[in-house]
Amino acid sequence: MSALPFSELAARIRARFPAVAERMSENRQPWLLVPAADLLAVCQLCRDDPELDFASLCDLTGWDLLRYPAQPPSDAIVVAYYLHSLRHRHHLTLKALAPRACCTLPSVSAIWPAAIAFEREVYDLLGVQFSGHPRLTRILLPEDWEGHPLRKDYAYPAAYHGVPHARAGQWFEDGPARAPAGAAPPAGGAA
């Protein structure tokens, strides 16, 4: 029933998994970098160790490092796990890197069921594959959408199912609009 500071949380985890590294963001927020091979075991330990007792996964998200001015430059996708213990009232941030070439991480949905939806969202928007996920399909975008929009090199689509994305020069014409190039919109159509 006592909150542990980050250093003790990290020490407890690193005693079992020496490959886990302590890191600090530029504005002094501490986090643990977990290698993908250890991720499942570390998460299991975080949940089941009575001193850690991270029963709740507050958030699971990610971002693309492609444009981030990090040293050394990286093009990996970060996936961040924000853990919280309601009993001990302490927090921990874990991060794992999914390289762009082989964008796969183990799924933690068997440990925290909350991760089922979160991981689907990260897959949808960032394109990280989670191995062992019960149903890894797109959650927000349509099934036939191309690309993963939150990646920094995402190119906006020009059209979806024949409907152009741009507003200009489009109007309704007895069915989904397919405007001939260069045609003038009718009066009031693009109000």
């Binding site: 975008l141 929009p149 995402y154 906006y156 689509p157 409907v163 994305h165 741009a166 507003r167 489009q170 109007w171 309704f172 989904p176 609009a177 159509g189 693009a190």
Partner: peptide, 11 residues
């Protein structure tokens, strides 16, 4: 990227 720019494209 996902918003339809005007419902008058469809109806």
């Amino acid at each position: 990227y996902s918003v339809l720019n005007g419902v008058d494209k469809y109806i």
